[in-house]
Design a binder for these strands. Structure first.
Length: 357
DNA sequence: GAGTCGTGGCC
DNA sequence: TGGCCAAGACT
């Protein structure tokens, strides 16, 4: 696909925009008809949507914009509050970068995001996709964001047989060749909507697709086979032991994880390292010398690149023992206000209510 | 380029 | 059940 004839390009763009105007989805971060675009909301939604489904983001987006309606409000918030509000959404470095970005925009741009793609890309948490998406959607600039949806749509439209991720540069070129000057934000969102609703990974519903007559993959019967991907390695299994220490029946001992790396900066229950096997003598790793009982069953969790199995030990301590223990005591009734990753909530739930696990 | 970095839903 | 996938960024 060396060149795209201007005539053909124009026809493809118009065809997709007509479809978009007719079938546009109502999403929490999209302005209602008559409302103007708020770059802050565009940015916030794009960060949250990185590798995360629309359904998962919805409630988090609503709660963030209600609590922090502007970039300056977010910049002024304590990072811990942002981390706990992000709890459960995953990829926690996004939350830290979100705050770092807000502070820079507040300090360097008076709270208003820059409208230049290169400047956007220099901000924390904004990569090539997000910079292009904000430039196009929030500021109407001609830009070509390429996410997983758009990769799939373009790989099919032009029957790109090269495998991902090797095909990424080619797909980016195709997106740039197609991106219109006018309504480039709508065009990008139209391709994403198309990928999310019609040009889906497994079973695309080509009969409903506005591009059915132009689609090269469809002509060759390759629509389900493209885009091709290089094979992935299977996840290894790691195991560990977690300790749930309860004080006075009402508070749980938490610690803070190191700021970087997996679940960086989030709270955790004390626990062993995660290795190929369970620790041979787990109780010598416990945070207290109190008496522990092992909870029947295991907590299972899946991360991107490994599976995790945890055995859980529980101990009840009294106020006298508690003084010398290093960590933070979290009221069980107030755990929602702590920056706990989902796996930690699973551990606590398993300890407090083993019947359900 | 290849690893790291979460979580939940779907088939 | 288990593999796949989602509006990627960063190293």
């Amino acid at each position: 696909m060396k060149d795209l004839p201007p005539q053909k390009r124009k026809a493809l763009v118009q065809c997709l925009l007509v479809w978009y105007d007719k079938s546009r989805r109502r999403l929490p971060w999209r302005p209602l008809p008559g409302q103007s675009v708020d770059p802050y909301r565009v940015w916030l939604s794009e960060i949250m949507l990185q590798q995360t489904t629309v359904a998962a983001v919805g409630p988090y987006f609503q709660s963030f914009v209600k609590r922090w309606p502007t970039m300056n409000a977010l910049a002024a918030a304590p990072v811990d509050e942002i981390m706990s509000a992000w709890s459960g959404l995953g990829y926690y470095s996004r939350a830290r970068n979100l705050h770092a970005c807000a502070k820079r925009v507040a300090a360097e741009y008076g709270g208003s995001l820059p409208n230049d793609e290169a400047e956007l890309k220099s901000l924390p948490g904004i990569g090539s996709y997000t910079a292009a998406a904000i430039a196009a959607i929030a500021f109407g600039k001609q830009a070509a964001p390429v996410d997983g949806n758009i990769e799939r749509v373009l790989a099919r439209l032009f029957a790109v047989r090269e495998k991902l991720p090797a095909a990424k540069p080619l797909l980016k070129n195709l997106a740039e060749a197609l991106a219109p000057q006018a309504r480039s934000g709508d065009f990008a969102q139209a391709m994403m909507d198309l990928g999310a609703t019609i040009c889906t990974p497994k079973s695309p519903t080509c009969e409903s697709c506005p591009w059915i007559r132009s689609c090269a993959a469809r002509k060759s019967g390759l629509e389900r086979a493209l885009p091709a991907r290089s094979t992935k390695k299977k996840r290894p299994l790691r195991r560990g032991t977690a300790f749930v220490v309860i004080s006075g029946g009402s508070e749980i001992l938490l610690r803070r994880r190191p700021p970087k790396g997996l679940l960086g900066g989030m709270h955790e229950t004390p626990m062993s390292a995660w290795e190929a096997n369970f620790p041979s003598d787990p109780l010598c790793l416990a945070p207290t010398k109190s008496k522990y009982r092992m909870i029947e069953g295991l907590v299972h969790h899946t991360f991107t690149h490994f599976d995790l199995e945890l055995q859980v030990f529980v101990s009840n301590v009294n106020s006298r023992q508690r003084g010398s223990i290093e960590g933070e005591w979290a009221p069980i009734n107030d755990l929602a206000h702590f920056a706990l990753p989902s796996v930690m909530r699973k551990i606590i739930e398993h300890a407090l209510n083993p019947a359900k696990a």
